[in-house]
Every structure is written in C-alpha cells, then in structure tokens.
C-alpha cells in the first residue's frame, strides 16, 4: 500500500481531474450519454436516463471531494465502486462482441476495447490506494 503523501496527492489530483472532466463532458449532453448507456443493452431506457442524469454529478462531486480531501473515504469508495462496475460492464461488452461507444467522456467517447479496460484498472488502483490510505489515516488519528 502506498503511504507517501506526495504520491497520494498526485493520485488524488489525477483521479479527481479525470472524473470532473468526464462528468462535465457528460453534463453537456445527457441525451447522448443516455443513448450510450442504452447501447450497452443491459439497462432499461428508464434506468439509462436516470443514470445519465445522476452519474455525471456523482462523478463531479466525488472528483471535487477527492481533490480537496473532504469525505475522502466515502468519495474514493464511491469512485472505486463505479470503476469496478465499469470494469464488469466493459468486460461483458467485449465478450459479447458489441461495438459500442463507451460514453466515458461524452462526445469525446471511445470504443469499448482492451485499452479502455486497462485504463479502468489503472484508475481503480489509484482510487483504491486513496481509499485504503484514508482508512489507515483514520485509524491512526482515532
């Protein structure tokens, strides 16, 4: 586990920045994001729209909180859960052979492929490092 504060700060800036950027791009066109979610053919249309409306704000909120270190455990846990869910969705999509736009960065989207899977794993490692370090920091202070 990484304990170096400077490295963890870089992790927080990278993770926070990526999620704020991703959330902002999705907010610009919620309908396109809803269509991207629907294209995975996993969620109903109602759920696709609800996710397209809520998810970008969740990403932005968590991104800001992670950067500023507020509710650090909760925000990094939420981001880790999101990334784990994306990981499952990407893997299932690749195995189903669907050629879909991931919807990760709004209209700057990219296709679901192995490089996306790798990027997701790297981000998941960063968020989990932030989460674990925030837990150990709590236990050290309590």
């Amino acid at each position: 586990m990484i304990r170096n504060k400077s490295i963890l700060l870089v992790f927080r800036l990278v993770v926070g920045g990526v999620f704020i950027w991703a959330g902002l791009l999705k907010i610009l066109d919620p309908l396109e994001f809803a269509q991207n979610i629907a294209n995975y053919r996993v969620f109903s249309r109602d759920l696709s729209l609800l996710a397209a409306i809520v998810l970008p704000w969740l990403e932005i909120l968590c991104g800001v909180l992670v950067i500023f270190g507020i509710f650090r455990s909760a925000s990094s846990l939420l981001l880790s859960s999101l990334l784990a869910a994306f990981l499952v969705l990407i893997t299932v999509t690749i195995f189903r052979g669907l050629d879909v736009d991931c919807g990760c960065f709004g209209s700057l989207g990219r296709h679901v492929d192995y490089s996306l899977l790798l990027a997701d794993i790297v981000l998941l490692y960063l968020t989990l490092s932030i989460f674990v370090s925030s837990l150990s920091r709590r236990s050290a202070t309590s």
Binding site: I53, V54, L58, L61, L65, A74, L77, L78
Partner: peptide, 14 residues
C-alpha cells in the same frame, strides 16, 4: 457520508 454524496448527486442531477 456515501449516502450524503449519493443524495446530493440525485437532487442536483434531477
């Protein structure tokens, strides 16, 4: 804390 963040996201998004 997770609940607060989720509720806020729902309220703002909707």
């Amino acid at each position: 804390h997770v609940g607060i963040i989720l509720c806020l996201s729902f309220v703002i998004g909707i």
